[in-house]
């Protein structure tokens, strides 16, 4: 068989290449790019001034602050958990390990609304622990602790899921060497393990944070929608939208969209720069 016939049978004809690229780009443009553009276009519909006024409005600022508070508690909590769980799962062999990994992934297959519902059923007024909490004067549902718990639940697997395949591939030889040379357990962790996993850890934290700040369904159920008190940014967007205050709704939404864009850029940068180190993670 002549060489050019082989080459043509191995690659698609030019018309098909063009057709497929055009199909893919049209689809992505319609489904992904256009909604993103629409957010900013709608937010700026009445000009930059109206946009700015909507953002510095009191309830909007309270929502931004609350979103940051929730993320600042939920993300580090899941970071510590993710590192501990990955250490336990990848450095040791024990019975029930696969079950444990499955349970860690479980929150990803639970609907966000159910993720909020379970805390209402546990801590709400008519919930299992409700009467006790009320007698102690502790409020979890329709308050900040409920928002934090629901956020921790929906972002639960992010860090562990990035770290487990990464640490599995790296093995334990370097840690064993450090211990043999006389390092303590903590020294081994801080000086050997952490530098090895830092980029994977950052990657997981990035995704965890994006979801924590953007979560809607779960926090919607536990929030009670008290303006200025228990509304995170996504919930504030919903309220403004339902009040037909579209410019303000899209203005707050545009801040969240920018957060998503920053996350995507940082994530892509990490993948380009440390692609090889993160490879184990991405193939999972």
């Amino acid at each position: 068989m002549p060489a050019n016939a082989t080459a043509s049978a191995l690659s698609d004809p030019a018309w098909m290449r063009r057709l497929l690229i055009a199909t893919a780009l049209t689809f992505l443009g319609l489904f992904l790019l256009l909604p993103l553009v629409a957010v900013f276009a709608e937010a700026l519909r009445r000009g930059v001034f109206a946009y700015w006024v909507a953002l510095v409005e009191e309830d909007a600022l309270a929502a931004i602050k609350l979103t940051l508070i929730v993320a600042v508690i939920a993300v580090p909590a899941n970071l510590v958990f993710g590192v501990a769980a990955s250490w336990c799962v990848t450095k040791f062999d024990f019975r029930g390990k696969n079950l444990l990994i499955t349970l860690i992934d479980l929150p990803f297959s639970v609907s966000p609304v159910i993720s909020g519902l379970i805390y209402v059923l546990l801590f709400g007024l008519s919930g299992l622990l409700g009467p006790y909490l009320k007698s102690e004067g502790i409020q979890i549902i329709f308050a900040v602790p409920g928002l934090v718990l629901a956020t921790i639940f929906v972002t639960f697997p992010f860090v562990a899921r990035e770290l487990i395949p990464l640490m599995q591939e790296q093995g334990s030889e370097e840690e064993e060497a450090a211990l043999v040379l006389g390092a303590s357990g903590w020294q081994t962790f801080w000086r050997v393990t952490l530098p090895n996993i830092k980029w994977g850890l950052l990657y997981g934290v990035l995704l965890c944070n994006a979801r924590a700040m953007g979560e809607f369904g779960a926090v919607s159920v536990v929030s009670g929608h008290i303006r200025g008190y228990t509304n995170t940014m996504p919930l504030h967007v919903e309220i403004l939208y339902n009040e037909y205050n579209f410019v303000a709704a899209f203005a707050v939404a545009s801040v969240l969209a920018m957060l998503a864009l920053v996350t995507l850029v940082a994530k892509t940068a990490l993948e380009w720069r440390f692609g090889a180190e993160l490879a184990a993670t991405r193939h999972k």
Partner: peptide
């Protein structure tokens, strides 16, 4: 990466 509520209103 995009919060679902933002996608929803867009």
């Amino acid at each position: 990466a995009l919060p679902t509520a933002v996608a929803g209103i867009a």
